[in-house]
Design a protein around this nucleic acid. Structure first.
Lengths: 337, 337
DNA sequence: ACTGTAGTCGAAACCGATTTAGGTAGCGGC
DNA sequence: GCCGCTACCTAAATCGGTTTCGACTACAGT
């Protein structure tokens, strides 16, 4: 098996505790001894056993990631995959590993919180889940340090989010600047992201003195092309159809374009559409998708920073949400009216 | 803190060892006692501490995932994200968790193998990496049970792969059946996937008595639209350009379509292109991308099965690679000549 | 009454580290 | 020569489980 601290102690002619202290920079070990231990440790390829250490120190340097795959798309969800990627880079650079948390372990079932405790997670990232789920709420309120993406739990854990308010505002302003007045908004299910974008939509429309007809507000589903396909058909069947439709995300934009193709509508000419997120394919395809690009890597990275802060300085006051700015991508799917 | 086995023992009026044995179904505990212990354990919300258990049993029920993010796209790579998703579902159903393996832990650097040993991984999934990297090779040859995706290490670890041979054959046959004779192939970098597809390309072309001009074989890069954008320009500058181009993957297909738009070529009419993978957006966009769909979820699931077999029955003979069939998607980007 | 044998359970070692409390050596000061 | 102080190191407890081995009880067999 692997070389243990005992082997190292025997080889150095020292006690186990001396080795431990030498490697952990305790002051009561001579520099000479420390250097020697270091050298022999490197020679023998020694490194401490993670679970033995964790057992004693209650620190695992492991972060649980709640990233559900139920009806949601989890890893296949472009936005969240990218956020996770940013999180992973940043947290790994700080010496932590990440492991996925789910509800089944061994033979039985476990709540998310208990799964975290079972593995002694130092903290948890909560992303891509139903934030109203009881299990998720329980975790967020527990003593396990958490960070959320795009959802603010009141006063329990920090949050990194994209600037949805500004994003939606800039999008509406841009679209309006091209002459659109009948602007439809296909919003997602009830989440704080949806709420923010919706209220920003209303505010901006009002500020621009544009009318908001209830018929032009349609409920869609995030990351679901079929749902938005249906929304387009519904909107275009109106007596006074919109000239421009804002959708939940870029995938939705693809669903919309698909519906338009079926209806014989040319993007930009017959109807303008805009997505949200700024995924790569949107900027590769023709026509280029008009959208608002979220800085997902940064959102993930900020989440990592917040979480590490929470873990290493638990008594600091709860930092305010970090709001990451995005960028308007003026593609070709929204045209001058 | 969490409730430990000691608390449970005290509450039950039994010894610690009796509790352990009761919960682990040892035969020398009466059914009555076992039931009682179970009940009290549930009431108190007890579950064993993972690292304490691992320390003694040398089983962590944790799988390391080597999934590099260097120049490669890691989690953002549609194909691998989907494979990982399939792997995750299957392995979690069997009671294992997954954690990402990288080269840095704590303050220092560790080889992939040592990172696995440090955390006492029960096994490892090797995917989305440079299989010729020394670190990766070391891991694959170690005593840590491994499984690979799309690469066969000789006689060291099992492998789940997509049926690239059949895929390429069917693609070429289909394209040829539509009348194409000058078929170009933009292949990826040197990997076993590339080798398989390339040799299958040659075999099939020969079997169909179609000429293979060296000028029609171009080196591209997987998952890199720009690289394939360049490849298209290069091919179309030939004296005798191809009528159809097969690309490394679907993202490459998008890059190709982009290049064509710039050259004023209409997909299907002026030039036919086919991708590989069958990602969702390819089937949403217009025109629908002609491609060969890999059953990525299944590849991941099979990998999980292989790995669990390796872990739980280490002395079984090495199973042969599992080759997962895919499916031709006849889109609209390859047209009758 | 004595032995044998299931059937149950407990004591203690152990996994590989960290950490507290204590021990020894050397040396200066008086 | 003794005290006290540093500097350096060791012994042992501890974390929370698992597992080996032995102990005890009750009952059947002789």
């Amino acid at each position: 098996m692997a070389v243990t601290i005992k082997d190292l102690a025997a080889r150095c002619g020292l006690s186990v505790s001396a080795i431990s202290k030498a490697l952990n920079n305790y002051p009561d070990i001579s520099e000479e001894t420390r250097a020697h231990v270091r050298k022999v440790a490197a020679e023998m390829g020694y490194f401490p056993n993670a679970q033995a250490r964790a057992l004693k120190t209650n620190r695992t340097y492991n972060i649980g990631v709640v990233y559900e795959d139920g009806n949601r798309d989890g890893l296949l969800h472009n936005f969240f995959a990218s956020v996770l990627d940013g999180f992973k880079r940043e947290i790994e650079a700080r010496g932590y590993d990440i492991t996925f948390i789910n509800r089944n372990v061994g033979r039985g079932q476990l709540s998310l919180l208990n799964h975290c405790k079972y593995r002694n997670m130092d903290g948890a990232l909560i992303a891509c889940v139903d934030f109203y789920n009881a299990d998720v709420v329980e975790l967020s309120q527990s003593d396990v340090p958490c960070v959320t993406i795009d959802h603010l739990f009141a006063a329990t854990c920090p949050c990194a989010m994209s600037d949805n308010r500004t994003g939606m505002r800039e999008l509406v302003q841009y679209v309006a600047s091209l002459g659109h007045r009948r602007i439809a908004f296909v919003h997602g299910e009830h989440t704080s992201v949806t709420d923010t974008r919706t209220s920003s939509f209303f505010e901006t429309m009002n500020a621009l003195n544009l009318p908001v007809s209830p018929a032009l507000l349609v409920q869609g589903v995030y990351h679901s092309p079929p749902s938005n396909y249906a929304a387009i058909k519904q909107l275009m069947a109106l007596a006074e159809p919109p000239s421009c439709v804002l959708l939940t995300d870029d995938y939705a934009g693809l669903g919309a374009l698909d519906a338009m193709a079926e209806l014989g509508l040319v993007p930009g000419r017959d109807l303008s559409v805009a997505g949200y997120d700024g995924i790569m394919v949107g900027q590769l395809m023709r026509p280029r998708l008009t959208t608002y690009q979220q800085d997902t890597r940064k959102v993930g990275g900020e989440a990592a920073r917040l979480l590490v802060g929470r873990i290493e300085r638990p008594h600091d006051v709860l930092p305010p949400p970090v709001i990451v700015p995005g960028k308007l991508l003026t593609g070709e799917t929204v045209a001058k009216l």
